[in-house]
């Protein structure tokens, strides 16, 4: 029952929309084991983005308990949430979100600056991560000199840099063509094989199938498997 690594029990998220109180997540129970590659599959409006925000500690649930890496995420200040994001979560976004004025190295170093890693160690780790994602010859390229796939690899290197507890990817192939998307998925699988814990949010069943386990979210209710799509 109790899972100190990742455990959600009865997670409810409600938003006030005008006069109406909308319940986006209706009591989510979710456990993730270390080293799992979990795909959260759901159409838009299903509440998967809200779930991602709560998993990523960008937002806190209205009720329910969420334990991440032995820590209960509840009633935390903005500052404490920022610390947890810095240590536990590696974000990968659909639109890559690289800062245009920084080169690949600079972008990968960014979370390390906030994590308080000294400059020399920062550079060493950033380079290591860029080599890991196969961009050893693009260390000092800027966003406009990189293809979409390469940008997403930089973003993955950035997410890996702080050695987070979980990699949290939001539609990581959403802005890529099919071939590039497949290549990024191969990289995800390789990271999974190395023992990384990955949570990937997607609406695309084909992409979701790369995960070692799939959960399905519909109307704020989570269920194992892909039944809704079958």
């Amino acid at each position: 029952m109790s899972n100190d690594f990742f455990s959600m029990r009865g997670i409810v998220k409600q938003y006030q929309m005008g006069d109406e109180l909308q319940t986006i997540l209706k009591g989510i129970d979710l456990d993730i084991d270390e080293g799992e590659f979990l795909s959260v599959l759901g159409p838009s409006g299903s509440g998967k983005s809200t779930l991602m925000n709560i998993i990523g500690c960008l937002d806190t649930p209205t009720s329910g308990t969420y334990i991440l890496h032995g820590r209960t995420i509840r009633d935390l200040s903005e500052k404490e949430l920022a610390r947890i994001r810095s240590r536990e979560i590696g974000f990968i976004f659909q639109q890559f979100q690289l800062l245009p004025r920084l080169d690949a190295m600079g972008n990968v170093e960014l979370p390390l600056i906030y994590a308080g890693v000294p400059a020399r160690e920062r550079r060493r780790r950033a380079e290591e991560m860029l080599v890991r994602v196969g961009l050893q010859d693009k260390l000092h390229h800027h966003r406009n000199q990189l293809s979409g796939g390469q940008q997403q690899r930089v973003a993955i290197a950035r997410a890996l840099a702080t050695n987070p507890t979980i990699l949290l990817a939001d539609e990581p192939t959403g802005a890529l063509d099919q071939t590039t998307g497949e290549q990024v998925m191969e990289l995800f699988e390789a990271l999974h094989d190395e023992g990384r814990t990955i949570v990937m949010i997607t609406h695309d069943l084909k992409i979701a199938r790369h995960g070692s386990r799939i959960v399905n979210i519909l109307d704020g209710v989570l269920s194992e498997g892909v039944s809704a799509y079958d």
């Binding site: 610390r83 994001r85 974000f91 979370p111 950035r158």
Partner: peptide, 16 residues
């Protein structure tokens, strides 16, 4: 705004 959001996601504290 987006850049600020990204920085926060990457672990920037409000004070920073």
């Amino acid at each position: 705004t987006t850049e600020i959001g990204l920085r926060k996601a990457l672990g920037a504290e409000p004070g920073q």
